[in-house]
Design a protein around this nucleic acid. Structure first.
Length: 151
DNA sequence: GCCAACGTTGGC
DNA sequence: GCCAACGTTGGC
């Protein structure tokens, strides 16, 4: 089992939305590096759900991968803002995974807090200027964030 | 709202 | 294939 972090702006789609929906297709990723990570995801992998561009930015809960990568239908929908004409020829140019809700933390594990944690210094998240919306985290980093959510 | 970081695009 | 211009992300 692998561990990942996925970012979402809460105004677009929040952990509360996921808790209500129970599962969602993670569409609209248009960055090759993030896409490649999504293609590596397997059923049962765990994700840290991160709220970016928010007042309380940080990890807000946990999700589980319940469907592996398949073509992003929005990439071939001309009316979608995620439309990409290149996907007509190459449907798996952009992909989605299905993420199911597992847990919403009672308290946000804030970015500020994580930056102070020695154990998280190698995490991509705390590195300056990281704009990647999907990336792997180590098992011990994942577990450390979980432990921070309990205090 | 600003702006640094950085990925992408397109002219050459 | 280089690189300047541009657009987007996301912290502050």
């Amino acid at each position: 089992m692998k561990f990942w972090l996925m970012k979402s702006e809460p105004e677009t789609y929040s952990i509360q939305d996921l808790e209500r929906d129970k599962k969602t297709l993670w569409e609209g990723v248009r960055n090759y590096q993030a896409r490649n990570f999504m293609k590596d995801m397997k059923k049962g992998d765990q994700i840290l759900f991160y709220h970016s561009n928010a007042k309380d930015k940080g990890v807000v809960g946990v999700g589980t991968i319940t469907e592996e990568a398949h073509p992003d239908p929005f990439a071939r929908n001309k009316k979608s803002k995620y439309y990409d004409p290149r996907a007509e020829e190459n449907p798996s140019l952009w992909v989605v995974v299905e993420v199911s809700w597992k847990k919403t933390f009672p308290n946000v594990v804030t970015l500020e807090r994580m930056k102070k944690e020695k154990k998280l210094q190698n995490m991509k998240l705390v590195q300056r200027g990281n704009r990647l919306s999907v990336f792997p985290v180590e098992k011990d980093e994942f577990e450390h964030v979980l432990s921070l959510s309990k205090v």
